[in-house]
């Protein structure tokens, strides 16, 4: 393989990994406080459309990104309200929001299909670093949001391990009842985390429609929200390994291009399936390895449990 192809593939892999990485960081925030948000796919999709429409209608990328954040948060807030206020089942609420988003974006976005984005996320060549031969080209000449995507898990990691806020978040995920008697307001914090997680997902979606794809397609996320869920499992509910998980997913998605460039005679359908199949295989192998080490499960102990103070 020649170096140019490798460089180009690395660059593509990083770009392809970024939306899922941002969304996975958002999902990690929600799952850290114990809320399993299957609505992440919906939040991503809604964010993708909202960002695209706002950018194209106003011609201002920044407005588009802000709206993507807001709409992603709003979609996740439906999950939060259903689960926290009305004690609905988390899986049902998440799926419902995802289905609602698929339907609504398909309908509302019908008029925008295949329109190209008025403005896409600008590419920013990092000074000095982008001049490194090959590596610089691969990693440091990316759309701005790609750098942000890598920064997200790092910031979340710092917050979770080094701040009072992060400690309280982890505590809620371990035991909402204990957090409550320790003086943490559980449900408010949970709702906020789910909404913020949704905002991340919305931004991740916008990076698709305003970045790597650059146009609106129905169901543009194509399951990347679910990939984000898998990346969280891959990372064993820790922030920094999210980056590795997302890069793995991105690399698998880029293999098709590589194969085409090298003239391999393997069906393109196989390469379409590869990121999903590969993610699945990795997650399964990790789960298998975990069963061989008898230890505490890596996920937050109260993941999936709702909390009502009166039931204490």
């Amino acid at each position: 393989m020649d170096l140019d192809l490798l460089t180009a593939s690395l660059a593509t892999a990083l770009l392809a990994a970024s939306p899922a990485l941002i969304a996975a960081t958002g999902e990690l925030i929600a799952e850290t406080v114990g809320v399993y948000n299957l609505g992440i796919e919906g939040a991503m999709l809604s964010g993708a459309l909202a960002g695209f429409v706002a950018t194209n209608e106003t011609g201002t990328l920044l407005l588009g990104l802000l709206l993507a954040l807001a709409v992603g948060a709003a979609a996740a807030s439906i999950v939060a309200i259903a689960v926290i206020v009305f004690d609905a089942d988390m899986v049902v609420a998440g799926l419902a929001v995802t289905f609602l988003s698929i339907g609504l974006t398909g309908w509302l976005g019908a008029g925008y299909v295949r329109e190209t984005a008025a403005e896409t996320v600008p590419i920013w060549n990092l000074p000095v670093l982008s001049d490194i031969p090959y590596l610089g080209e691969a990693l440091f000449r990316q759309p701005v949001l790609v750098y942000l995507a890598v920064l997200c898990p790092i910031v979340v990691w710092l917050i979770l391990t080094r701040t009072r806020l992060g400690l309280n978040l982890r505590a809620i995920g371990e035991s909402p009842h204990a957090a409550d008697v320790s003086g943490v307001s559980v449900n408010v914090t949970r709702a906020a985390c789910v909404a913020i997680g949704g905002a991340f997902a919305g931004l991740g979606g916008a990076l698709l429609s305003l970045g790597s794809v650059g146009s609106w397609l129905p169901n543009i996320t194509n399951g990347e929200g679910y990939i984000a869920l898998a990346i969280v499992i891959f990372a064993s509910w820790r922030a920094l390994p999210l980056i590795a998980g997302a890069l793995l997913f991105g690399a698998l998605g880029t293999l098709g291009n590589v194969a085409q460039a090298l003239g391999w005679s393997v069906s393109a359908d196989f390469f379409f399936a590869l990121p999903y199949l590969g993610t699945l295989a990795v997650v399964a192998v990790l789960a298998w390895l975990r069963t061989r080490r008898a230890a505490r499960p890596p996920w937050p102990a109260a993941l999936g449990e709702t909390f009502q103070r009166s039931a204490a």
Binding site: A82, A93, T98, I102, G103, L104, G106
Partner: peptide, 12 residues
């Protein structure tokens, strides 16, 4: 899509 949205809304 509209139908799917109605299903989703009904479920929520």
């Amino acid at each position: 899509s509209l139908v799917f949205a109605m299903f989703g809304l009904a479920l929520v």
